[in-house]
Amino acid sequence: MSKKTGTLDPTRREKGFLGTGVAPWAGFGVTLRTFFERPVTEQYPFKGKYPPPYPRYHGRHQLNRHPDGLEKCVGCELCAWACPADAIYVEAGANTPEEQYSAGERHGRVYQINYLRCIFCGMCIEACPTRALTMTTFYELASAQRADMIYTKDELLAPAAGGMLAAPHPMAEGATDDDYYAGRVSGPTSQQVEWVERRRPDDPTLPTAREAARAARGPVRPPGAPPPRPPLPELEGGER
């Protein structure tokens, strides 16, 4: 057992004669060793590739879509309510037959996140009741303009990929908003595709959506099919 000295670190053992003699030069050993190692410095963003973050990194937000392309956001503002930095601004709107953006009656008409305020805590993600708002791992958020740092709905909305049909378009025939939330709608139906073809023939999501609709032949649960649970005696007046 070495006796304790007056050093700041009580665990440090007092050096012997050799140790004391070599100590002033020992640090150079590290220097010498790194002469022969590869440098770890990332020349980001000037050189090299985008350094990948961890998969759960809290990056920029994304507003997701249902598989048929309708938006998941219902404009409930719970994200704005949960936000400790007051970074989110939402205004809701009513869906109409001609302008159906999300499943059900209500959609997020205005959606803004101010990334000068956002602290990436993820409370908004936890608050979102429809899984509309999630976070990507994208972190390249910088601008010389303050206004550019307020991301609006068109920037946050996920692209209509994988056979999705860009909103607005009607909900899948016979489906309710519950069906959407329960994942019983797996992609656009041919009626939805036709609806968009009639109104926006140049919509860029049409070709893939058409293909997806042809492949799936409508929603997974066709209208009128029983819900997963065995049905109970239907209450009169309880029509859907």
């Binding site: 009656e105 819900p227 649970r229 049905p231 109970l232 209450l235 007046g237 309880g238 029509e239 859907r240």
Partner: peptide
Amino acid sequence: NDKKNTFPKP
């Protein structure tokens, strides 16, 4: 744990 009464709305 059963089916709720639903109505067309609003």
